[in-house]
Nucleic acid binder design. Sequence first.
DNA 1: GTGGTCTAGACCACA
DNA 2: GTGGTCTAGACCACC
Lengths: 131, 131, 131, 131
Amino acid sequence: MFITIQAKSQLPLYEQVVQQVKELVAKGILKEGEQLPSVRELAGQIVLNPNTVSKAYKELERQGVIMTLRGKGTFIAESSNRLVDPGKRDLIKEQLLRLVIEANYASITKNEFLTWVEAEYRALEGQKDEN
Amino acid sequence: MFITIQAKSQLPLYEQVVQQVKELVAKGILKEGEQLPSVRELAGQIVLNPNTVSKAYKELERQGVIMTLRGKGTFIAESSNRLVDPGKRDLIKEQLLRLVIEANYASITKNEFLTWVEAEYRALEGQKDEN
Amino acid sequence: MFITIQAKSQLPLYEQVVQQVKELVAKGILKEGEQLPSVRELAGQIVLNPNTVSKAYKELERQGVIMTLRGKGTFIAESSNRLVDPGKRDLIKEQLLRLVIEANYASITKNEFLTWVEAEYRALEGQKDEN
Amino acid sequence: MFITIQAKSQLPLYEQVVQQVKELVAKGILKEGEQLPSVRELAGQIVLNPNTVSKAYKELERQGVIMTLRGKGTFIAESSNRLVDPGKRDLIKEQLLRLVIEANYASITKNEFLTWVEAEYRALEGQKDEN
DNA sequence: GTGGTCTAGACCACA
DNA sequence: GTGGTCTAGACCACC
């Protein structure tokens, strides 16, 4: 699992784990049914408090991205089990508005911004056959 | 001043004020030199504690979006005085990556996402003659 | 009277007037016995509320830099009448310490700082025969 | 942490904290990575409201002097992260001019003033090996 | 009237 | 435990 944590980021540590697992799944690097390292194992690898990793796993499970089989371990769930929070679309649109305004203040042009979006979607689509 | 606060949002109240003022300025609805409502006045309008509004104004001043004249009030600053925090571009790119992944999980297609970006940039450019 | 006011400065407007009059006196541009413009006159020139100018004159009078002759006007006082607040030396030393630390954080070298001091003292000494 | 607050000073309490932390860092007494006392702890020590200390820490963080790790505490930042506000040099020069004029009125000679500057710069350079 | 500072005390998310 | 946010209410300097 290639997860890197930045202690200084404003994003909570457990959220960083959540985001990166979701990114790895979206890119097809982690595939359905694949087993994740245990909480303690991952906590050791990325030097985090196990409670923090546990919180990340709980959130991932809530979203239906992973599932825990008691006594067996944690696995990537089937994509059909994913949960999309109601109002998520609106929330994303709202956050996008904020981001565009901030980009505008940072003198980032529309074209530059669009290029970024394209690049990031392309990174996802490359290996995304099963999503 | 058309500012609306959503108590339920995860975004801090003072940040909501900051964002909305920046949006109004970016859209040209608030113009350079224009006076903002006083801290107490705005606090009354949007039903917030004056300290919270004050915090928002302080942050806006730090970013060079507004300026305060002692004893006189608060005004929209010249755009040349704007301050962009170092590393802001990278931060935006990072947040955009997160947003694209979330959009992907919410089944928002690339085209849809791009359309949103275009629309929001257009809303900014529409009235931005003097900025 | 060559006085310029910067509305944006954090220094109070009346203090700016006080400082600049003291500077003009220290440089010998305003000489003992010379008459100052009236409060209203000066307020008109530098576009300030007369109350603000009045406050500046009161402070200058308190420090013994100027004196008011009722019905006649306001004049530069004799230097022997000047008042130095007790503890002023310590206060200046303290402020200098703050300034040196700030200079240090702004990457201003000792030599650069010393050069500035020399230059500013020289500007005062040039015409200062009667101080 | 040797911080002392003077209630009578014209300088705001939180600014006194900011200045003194910057002084301790500049003198090398507080080193990179070192942990600062918690907001509540320092507030208790110097008998201030935690909010006031928090405000000081926020300002120090804004200047890149310290950094906070969520849930962990506050630490001295790497000196490479320091932020110098634009126009800071000019501001310092301006304040220096004011100080020199005040010194002049307080009968402080150029040599005396220069000696003070030298002494204070020396106090900074003495222990600054790793900055 | 304006904004700036400070206190007191509450609640919350994060680790 | 940590810092972050918010409210309520007070006092002050400046204009």
